[in-house]
Design a protein around this nucleic acid. Structure first.
Lengths: 221, 221
DNA sequence: GTGATGAAACAGACTGGTTGGTTTGGTTTA
DNA sequence: TAAACCAAACCAACCAGTCTGTTTCATCAC
């Protein structure tokens, strides 16, 4: 066991996150959390003054990881391609890979969980959620701006709309995938989003220059 | 007041639905529900044997209304246009109108609420949720099949994928719209979906035949 | 028309268990 | 010594659900 309590704290956060994904925050009692984490009540309230504080710490950690994941894949895409549009298409492809590598597990989003129980949380916690969702706009905006600048899209669109659409696709497809217990639903919806980007920016290059099938494996080198 | 209990029952269901939209099912106690509905505990447990029974009745009613709403707009679209693809584009446009007419209110989806608290509900209730979400596939499948048959799409797609995409767009955009308190986000995402359908089936007719802007007002006549 | 009857529609006090959270008092480890 | 725990008793508030009535109203004999 960790001497400095970070392991205990992480065990509590991990257990709580899993519980919240499955039954929501309200129905995940402190007793449930400590039982799942294998710690005592004393330990819990040593690390978190209230359950609300756990809720905030939970979504803060999730927001940090979510942003890091997006930044990491964006950096990868930037290394693999020079053109902003190519980078975006690649980014979505990398997401598809990530999700497919999870096997039959369907990822969840703590932001969405909190939105559906919004009244339980204070303004500070909900602000973390909102900022976490807006981070996608902020990080993708320059790319979409460049793509729109480089090639007039077939339909009038804004960068924020396209960024929101990626996030909305993920959120919506996670809900459907969970209900139908179909792990392929989310990556297939991401594929639809990629299709849209390709068709929207179709005039970007002459015919063959945008390959129908993005050769991710090749680009990897 | 109605002598038969239908009014009371509806008041309970209405109040419960609003509460569940705002704070989820677990956090909506029976006491909260009866307070919001303005009825007593006796009345509540006269109409519902348990809270779980309320949960089931709630989602049953929602599924019935959701399906009816989809069927109604689909019938409208069928009356206004003959071609299946046109009908689909029109359907999405009608949804946009519906949502814009709500003003600053952002609609919620009980299906999504339940998915995010899935462990609280029994298999029968979750089955109603799953069937309610699958109804979109069932009702839209013939249209997408016809559209794909009539015009080879620019990318390989299945009817179910396109039906799921509409639903996922709505679900995801409702989450984002709620977080950012932006009632325009959902209709604008529906617009993106419509863009995708238009570009995907672009070869449907020569150039000018698919108007960039669907003249809904004209079609209304 | 009147009054008895029975069933559904409530009203609201009550109960036993659970909730988030506290407290106390100790043990382990850098 | 101080921080990181553990164990368990304890609390007031709240929870779903029960219980014992009371009101309302259609039905039907008279």
């Amino acid at each position: 066991m960790g001497k400095d309590g970070t392991q205990t704290k992480r065990a509590i956060l991990d257990a709580a996150e899993q519980l919240v994904f499955r039954r929501g925050f309200a129905a995940s009692s402190v007793d449930d959390v400590i039982a799942a984490a294998g710690v005592t009540k004393g330990a819990f309230f040593h690390h978190f003054r209230t359950k609300a504080e756990l809720g905030q710490a939970l979504v803060e950690r999730f927001a940090r990881r979510d942003r890091a994941h997006l930044e990491r894949n964006l950096a990868r895409a930037e290394r693999l391609a020079g053109d902003p549009l190519m980078q975006l298409l690649l980014l979505v492809g990398l997401f598809e890979e990530d999700i497919e590598s999870l096997g039959s597990e369907i990822p969840g989003c703590l932001f969405a969980c909190y939105i559906y129980e919004a009244q339980l949380f204070d303004a500070r916690t909900l602000d973390i959620v909102a900022k976490g969702l807006l981070a996608w706009r902020d990080l993708l905006r320059p790319k979409f701006e460049a793509a729109i600048r480089n090639c007039e899209p077939q339909r009038p669109v804004t960068p924020d709309e396209l960024a929101d659409q990626l996030l909305a696709t993920i959120e919506g497809a996670m809900i459907l995938g969970r209900s139908h217990r179909d792990p392929t639903l989310l990556p297939r919806q991401l594929r639809q989003y990629r299709n849209y980007l390709e068709l929207l920016f179709a005039r970007w290059m002459p015919a063959k220059a945008v390959p129908n099938d993005l050769a991710l494996a090749d680009a990897e080198r």
